[in-house]
């Protein structure tokens, strides 16, 4: 085998090794979203606490934060305090709305969860899982930020805590409310 072939073989092996190495560090559960900058699907469902119908159309022209959660989800409990804090931060802004989406849950369990951990905003029930599938959700918690034009601008898979909280409040929601350019990021 001449030098050229040997070099080609070595380069191929290095390439394969690099792919393998990258695969080792990647999260196999992470699915890159295809929904950023697309129209947020409309939905309609009953409120977990009051039973009244909530629809996304009601909030046209506002920045909407959608947070998918379930009472059986440990990470949802971890982020709950931050989620309430986030609502507290923006709730006085008339252009901001926060909605919880209760996912794959029993109504009594969801109501008990909200009583126990507190609730300051509305939560829609996703009765047949259609809403979650429309948003490409595959686990909870997942959070979406929808802009005033009804486009999905941000998605985060996992709890909104620490740096993620800072990022979503300062680099996503605040600029959208102030009509500044934002960084459209995903987890």
């Amino acid at each position: 085998m001449n030098k050229g072939w040997q070099l080609t073989l070595i380069l191929c092996l290095i390439g394969l090794f690099a792919l393998f190495y990258q695969g080792l560090w990647g999260d196999p559960r992470h699915i890159p979203t295809v929904l950023i900058e697309t129209d947020a699907p409309n939905f309609e469902g009953p409120d977990v606490e009051t039973g009244q119908t909530i629809s996304l159309d009601q909030f046209k022209g506002k920045v909407v934060l959608l947070n998918f959660w379930a009472s059986w989800c440990y990470e949802c409990k971890v982020e709950h305090k931050s989620i309430l804090q986030l609502h507290q931060l923006f709730k006085d802004n008339p252009d901001f709305v926060m909605l919880g989406v209760n996912y794959q849950d029993e109504l009594p369990d969801a109501q008990k969860y909200l009583k126990e951990y507190g609730s300051t905003f509305s939560h829609v029930r996703d009765l047949k899982g259609q809403l979650a599938i429309d948003y490409g959700v595959y686990g909870v918690p997942e959070t979406f930020v929808i802009d005033q034009q009804g486009k999905i601008r941000h998605k985060w898979v996992g709890p909104i805590t620490g740096e993620v909280y800072t990022n979503i409040t300062q680099k996503v929601i605040a600029p959208l409310l102030n009509a500044q350019p934002t960084t459209t990021t995903t987890s």
């Binding site: 794959q104 047949k128 899982g129 259609q130 979650a132 599938i133």
Partner: peptide
């Protein structure tokens, strides 16, 4: 459950 819901969809 998600797969069941997807089959339903």
């Amino acid at each position: 459950p998600l797969a069941q819901q997807m089959r339903g969809v």
